[in-house]
Nucleic acid binder design. Structure first.
Length: 210
DNA sequence: CACCAGGAATGTA
DNA sequence: TACATTCATGGT
């Protein structure tokens, strides 16, 4: 089945043609390579943006920067020394009490496990399992972190993807795992393509929300 | 006023 | 396994 001659790959080409490289709107996420600080910002952003628009995330990130440096280490220190201050800083993103708790737990994990290095080297299946065991990280967030912070070629499925699948009638089944396998089956194994494609799906989805 | 935004945890059956 | 509920601010 010609890998480059199927509906899913054509959808990627169509969106790419329409919007170009999603560097402008998704400048942090699709940037390559990333510094350690940028990777941590992706992880922090991945938690904060759950069920929230990115504008509100930026408000919270600004609050965090105002207090301290934007890193997992400083979030850990803030969460230990002044948890209330961390919670208040996260107010703009909504669900802020949960997210403050989640972020602190995640920051604690990375502190204990000497930062990002372990997850970077492990096979992605193991890293994914590790991430999923952390409170506040579900399938989409885990895969977003693996794809955008660690450059693992794992396709991220979200509501925009499901809407597009329905609209284009690519599949009747819409479960996370099924769609992820479907996209990965019909796309070249290329994390850069995955990063751009998912971003393009979200950018495109925003144009049709209504 | 209602509705939604780059989800996940928890509980129920 | 599959659904329902809860968490909650800011923009339109």
């Amino acid at each position: 089945m010609g890998l480059r001659n199927n509906k899913i790959f054509k959808l990627y080409q169509e969106l790419y043609k329409k919007y170009g490289k999603p560097r402008e709107q998704w400048k942090l996420w699709c940037k390559r390579p990333k510094t350690k600080r940028e990777k941590e910002k992706v992880i922090i952003g991945a938690i904060l943006t759950q069920r929230t628009n990115w504008k509100n995330v930026e408000l919270a990130l600004t609050n965090l920067k105002r207090i301290n440096k934007l890193s997992l280490k400083s979030i850990y220190n803030l969460g230990i020394n002044n948890p209330k201050k961390l919670t208040i800083a996260l107010r703009p993103v909504g669900f802020y009490q949960n997210k403050a708790h989640y972020l602190l737990g995640i920051a604690r994990f990375f502190k204990k496990n000497s930062g990002l290095k372990a997850l970077q080297k492990q096979p992605w299946e193991k890293s994914r399992e590790t991430l999923l065991n952390l409170k506040g990280i579900g399938p989409e967030t885990a895969d977003s972190i693996l794809l955008y912070a660690f450059d693992k070629s794992i396709f991220v499925i979200d509501e925009y993807t499901r809407r597009l699948v329905k609209k284009k009638k690519l599949s009747k089944r819409l479960s996370y795992n099924y769609l992820q396998k479907l996209f990965q089956k019909y796309l070249p194994n290329n994390y850069k393509l995955y990063q751009d494609f998912h971003a393009l799906i979200v950018i495109d989805g925003k144009n049709y929300t209504g």
